[in-house]
Amino acid sequence: MEKSLSWREFIITRLIQSSGYSAILFVALIFFFLLREGLPTLSEVDASSLLNFRWYPIESYFGILPLLSGSLIVTLGAALIAVPFGIGTAVYISEIAPRWMREILKPLVELLGGLPSVVLGFLGILVVSPFLRVFLDLPTGLTAFTGSLLLGGIAVPTVVSVAEDALDSVPRAYREGAWALGATKWQTIWRVTLPAAKSGVLTAVMLGVGRAIGETMTVMMVTGNAPVLATGLGSLFSPVRTMTATIAAEMGEVANGSTHYHVLFFIGMVLFIISLIVNVIASSVVFRAKKRAERILS
């Protein structure tokens, strides 16, 4: 009886172990396939025309700079919105709101995080963009700014939940110490609690930004899809094209194995690497104290 138990245990343990390692397998697979289909770009398109300002695949112009700048400007705008609103809301939920309010707000913010991006894009087309066109007197409402606005909304839940976690983890003793010294709650938040949660809040921002960079549908639907290099602040209010939207929009019309096909995979590779960098940095600033192996006291 004991013998069969240990056999079963052995198989189960092995299955569990391989499941654990599967994550590494998948990352490797993804990277490999992106490479496989994306690297031929470097032999088919030379570097100078890649790093060019014209993206016009029909006539074989594969300059990806306008796409890079499109992604950059939209993401930056999104960050500018998500950071204050995200951290502010996190501070409110964690430090100011009464208990009952917390129980309402937290699920609400989580709800926003669950909204499909296509729904937000949809509302962007029908509601936000016409509004902005009229309100800001623009030729079109489909601009980088519209994208930033909506992307900010998408990134906010990520920022709020991670930042709120970070603020929550600050030991109560820190706050109580500040109060004991005569600080007001407000002063405590800004001079004690927030600095103590600094690395967690930073992580929150980076994860939010990571989320914004990777967004596809919303930007595809509201940023106007004009692959024009962003120059100066004015381009915030004109149409742009992000890398993600490019892939999504053009992949369907591309001949398998063509140069255009390879270039799209190449852009995918670039996105993969950018998100790799952002997310790895974000997690190395991990604020959760590592639990040491339990020491046995005697």
Binding site: V27, G214, T216, M251, F272, S275
Partner: peptide
Amino acid sequence: IAIINLAGIPSVVYGLF
């Protein structure tokens, strides 16, 4: 790290993959 990485990959890149 692999898991964090997977979590951050843009959804359209998953589509490509």
